[in-house]
Design a protein around this nucleic acid. Structure first.
Length: 190
DNA sequence: AAAGAGATGGTCT
DNA sequence: GACCATCTCTTTT
């Protein structure tokens, strides 16, 4: 089975367009020297003209990575407790990204079970905060290049991506209070 | 099975 | 000082 890094060019573009293409790729972590991988099954698009986006109000210290080049990880602290990770999709200065909402474990499931406190297998990576906990993604990983072989967090293509269009569910995003009807949540049908 | 609430801290106005 | 791109546990139907 061939495994190649996701090319930066594939990630560069309008977030709602790139979103479905990101589905089915493999998120690979070697945080702590331990391999964990999972298939990305749910993402949400955010961009600057979108009131729900962290970049809506322009550049700040927190969102600077989102305004950078595609392929880098934007990690932020959610509700003071959880981490959430995004993959930047836009060109420099555009402020677009895809929130990694859910994945399905592929490798390192034992590690994930430990990190997730022994929860049911179906609940190991089925939310943005849970996903970061499962992969060991911390605030330190803000800015990491997921296209670079030397990164602890990488995005890989094992030939299974992307899913057929009729297998992609589209709907409104979760947990936001603005632009609640914009259908920029993409999920692989199960 | 569904609904409610508390935790917890950075970020921005 | 208000507002969260959430999760888990508890309480109620």
């Amino acid at each position: 089975m061939s495994l190649r890094p996701v090319d930066r060019a594939e990630l560069s573009g309008d977030a709602p367009v790139v979103g479905p293409r990101l589905l089915g790729t493999l998120l690979v972590s070697r945080v702590g020297g331990v391999l964990v991988s999972g298939r990305v099954v749910e993402v949400e698009a955010y961009r600057q003209d979108d009131p729900a986006s962290h970049t809506y109000g322009g550049r700040t210290a927190r969102n600077r990575v989102m305004f950078g080049p595609a392929g880098h990880l934007y990690v932020y602290l959610s509700y003071g407790i959880h981490r959430c990770a995004n993959v930047v999709t836009g060109a420099e200065g555009e402020g677009q990204a895809l929130l990694l909402r859910a994945a399905v474990p592929v490798e390192g499931v034992e590690t994930v079970r430990t990190r997730r406190g022994g929860r049911r297998d179906a609940e190991l990576m089925d939310g943005p905060g849970k996903l970061c906990q499962a992969f060991g993604i911390e605030l330190d990983h803000d800015g990491v290049d997921v296209c670079s072989p030397s990164s602890e967090i990488r995005l890989m293509d094992d030939g299974a991506a992307p899913p057929a269009p009729d297998r992609v569910l589209v709907g409104p995003r979760v947990g936001i209070t603005k632009a609640i009807d914009t259908p920029w949540r993409f999920r692989i049908a199960r």
